[in-house]
């Protein structure tokens, strides 16, 4: 579908190249508007970072991309969110199918209380794929740079791994279903610097196979790994004192950090607020 192009500076993006096309996206929890005014195109085989102060709705937006917000009672999404030109919130779309193509890695490593092998094989198994699992598990663990550390104890419980290993296992688990996109929700926030560096390296390595969207509170991380960056912030309604997140600026990462167009972005990336 997409004619491959590496030119990240070509703006505005032409529609076919975009994995996600977002236009005026708004997310509500009941009557409360959590996020508003989100418009952005996510390009394939790039790392797109979403940064901003806490409570600005970046995780909420991320969880729209694989319909994870469906699990939250009362959550409602309005506006346009297309995945390869298909409206993701069309009533015909099955979130289960979406999540088999758009994988997710969570803030806190959440391996299942099962063996390392069963963790990785879980996705293929629930999709009805029972054959060739051994190979698939090995490939996925290799891609996640975990194979050498665990190849001798695949039957051991995943709970015995270190935090960084657990998170890489979660990445292996996510890529075992051969997704198109990987969503990462602050994947390093619970890890030490060494484990963080490993994961960052890994992200850059696997981006030729996957489109990656990462939420991070760590600006340096966004600057190090991402191709494009979206800066979110929150505005407080003076009447209700409710915080609503919004997308302030979305541009190639270099531009966001060296030449921000919006004053709020500049204040944030220079450390004056947040």
């Amino acid at each position: 579908m997409s004619d491959h192009a590496d030119d990240v500076t070509a703006e505005p993006a032409d529609a076919p190249r975009a994995v996600f096309h977002v236009e005026d996206l708004r997310v509500y929890y009941g009557d409360f508007r959590a996020v508003t005014d989100v418009s952005m195109d996510v390009h394939d085989n790039e790392i797109t970072a979403m940064i901003g102060p806490s409570g600005c709705g970046k995780s909420t937006v991320l969880r729209c991309f694989n319909r994870m917000n469906d699990l939250i009672p009362g959550a409602r999404v309005e506006g346009r969110l297309d995945y390869h030109s298909i409206p993701l919130y069309d009533h015909k779309v099955d979130p289960v199918e979406v999540r088999r193509r758009i994988g997710m890695v969570f803030q806190k490593p959440n391996p299942f209380p099962k063996s390392i092998y069963d963790n990785v094989a879980y996705g293929p198994r629930v999709a009805g794929n029972k054959k060739g699992l051994d190979d698939l598990v090995e490939q996925s663990l290799r891609k996640a740079a975990l194979w050498d550390e665990v190849k001798d104890r695949l039957k051991n419980s995943a709970m015995g791994l270190s935090g960084g290993q657990q998170q890489r296992l979660c990445i292996a688990r996510a890529i075992a279903v051969s997704p198109d996109v990987l969503l990462m929700d602050e994947p390093c926030s619970a890890l030490d610097p060494i484990a963080t560096a490993l994961i960052e390296e890994l992200m850059v390595e696997i981006k030729e196979d996957y489109t990656i969207i990462i939420v991070t509170h760590n600006m340096q991380q966004a600057a190090r790994v991402s191709d494009r960056t979206a800066f979110f912030t929150a505005e407080v309604d003076p009447n209700t004192e409710q915080r609503t997140g919004l997308l302030v600026e979305y541009a190639p990462t270099d531009a966001i950090f060296s030449n921000p167009q919006d004053e709020r972005t500049e204040n944030y990336v220079t450390g004056r607020f947040g």
Binding site: D90, K92, V93, D94, V96, E97, R101
Partner: peptide, 12 residues
């Protein structure tokens, strides 16, 4: 990811 994605494939 060779298979083309359509609304039908996403309907399950």
């Amino acid at each position: 990811m060779a298979e083309p994605i359509s609304l039908e494939t996403l309907s399950g």
